[in-house]
Design a protein around this nucleic acid. Structure first.
Lengths: 130, 130
DNA sequence: GTTTACCTTTACGTTAACGTCAACTTTATT
DNA sequence: AATAAAGTTGACGTTAACGTAAAGGTAAAC
């Protein structure tokens, strides 16, 4: 049986994701994480680990920590009134459209790189036919 | 007939791409652009404009200026020896694989956002059926 | 001929995202 | 009991990517 209430120490998470403990505490400072405590010591639940994953994914896509915190906050409509829900929807759709833009950028850059690779390969061929 | 040797002033480019002239000069400082000069004044050729586009595309994907400069430098195998070509090929492939990672990240984040949107829409429905 | 509109260089200021000590406590180990 | 291993909270340092002002040159328009 998989344990659902597993916990992690800060250095365990740091090792797993190849970041420093300093960075993890920094994310907490910025309001992205809220681990429990046993005395002074931070104790991370699976949910915290998931948030960390989201943060790092955000970083790979060039998001700032503020943006990642926003996105993490989009997960629970919770008890909001209509206005808040509409605002949330707007933010979600804006994000999605930006992702579409990034998708397009990646496609084009990928094609460019492929051409560059081909040119480099041709140049290599040229060297060998001398 | 389209003019091939059209030129642009710095403020024209700034306006077109919605950035500041300061930023454009900064990119030059960092070695990403090399515009011509008429006296003191910078004169940008279509090639410079293209490089600017590449820089901004890089930024949208979270690249640093150093990384974008590298990528721009990948366009011409030019006259290089085999070692240089192999190094170039390695860098190109590394970039491509990072783009694949980003592609995957985008797909997953897109799905997550879609779920969030659906939950928000459901929450809206709930409000209306009261 | 002087205002207006761009252009230039130089230089200090700012923000994000940590890195890097320092000084100290708690826990585990020998 | 003493040492080592991990944890904590400051607090100052660093880098990237510009922003922002200062001080001035040039050229067309009024």
């Amino acid at each position: 049986m998989e344990q659902k209430n597993k916990t992690y120490s800060i250095s365990e998470l740091a090792k797993e994701f190849d970041i420093t403990t300093r960075a993890i505490r920094f994310y907490e400072d910025k309001g992205l994480l809220n681990p429990g405590r046993r005395g002074q010591t931070r104790i991370y639940a699976p949910a915290d680990r998931t948030k960390l994953k989201l943060i790092l994914r955000g970083k790979r896509l060039g998001l700032t920590l503020d943006e990642s915190r926003d996105i993490i906050g989009m997960y629970n409509p919770g008890q909001s009134n209509e206005d808040q829900l509409q605002t949330l929807l707007a933010k979600i759709r804006e994000r999605k459209s930006y992702l579409q833009q990034q998708l397009h950028d990646i496609e084009v850059m990928m094609l460019d790189l492929q051409e560059s690779e081909n040119r480099a390969l041709e140049a290599l061929e040229q060297l060998k036919t001398d």
